[in-house]
Simulated scan of single mutants.
Amino acid sequence: MPLTLSPEAQQQAIASIERYFREHMDEPIGNVAAGGLLKFLVEEVGPALYNQGVADAQENLQARVAELDIEVHHEAFTYWNQRSRRK
């Protein structure tokens, strides 16, 4: 499954790349070149970032599942214990 950005996110990313080059590099980058750089980064680096995000989400979910029995656990067979305390 190829990684893609929405058109709005792509426009924002290109504008951000152009601004970065204006403020931090010796030469500005044009819109077409910024779009090409973005396409390269999404294809080359994007999968590693995506995979790390999936791994982080899995770790978080596994931690929550591990705590589930603690959060929702109910003691069984407590009727007689409760009755003996009332007497």
Rank of each mutant, 00 (worst) to 15 (best):
N60Y: 13
P47G: 06
P28Q: 02
L37F: 09
Q62I: 12
P47V: 04
V54N: 03
Q52A: 12
V45W: 06
A57T: 07
N60K: 10
E43D: 13
E59A: 14
E44P: 06
Q58I: 09
F40V: 09
K39H: 11
A57R: 08
Y50C: 10
K39T: 15
E59D: 11
Q52R: 14
L61P: 00
V42G: 03
E59Q: 14
L37H: 02
D56P: 00
E43C: 04
L38H: 05
L49N: 09
D56A: 07
V42D: 01
V54D: 03
N51S: 09
V32R: 12
A55S: 07
V32W: 13
K39E: 15
F40D: 06
I29S: 04
P47M: 08
A63K: 09
A57H: 05
I29A: 07
A34M: 03
L49H: 11
V42Y: 02
R64S: 15
F40Y: 10
N60S: 15
N31M: 00
V45D: 05
L41T: 13
N51R: 12
Q52D: 11
K39R: 14
N60H: 12
N31Y: 07
E44W: 11
A55E: 14
G53Q: 04
L49R: 10
I29R: 12
V45L: 10
V65N: 06
A63P: 00
D56S: 11
G53A: 09
Q58S: 04
L41Y: 11
G36H: 04
V45I: 04
A33C: 05
A55P: 00
A33T: 14
L49E: 12
G35L: 02
P28Y: 04
K39Q: 15
E44F: 13
V45M: 09
A55K: 06
A57C: 03
G30L: 11
G46K: 00
E43I: 04
N60I: 12
N51M: 10
Y50D: 11
Q52W: 08
E43F: 03
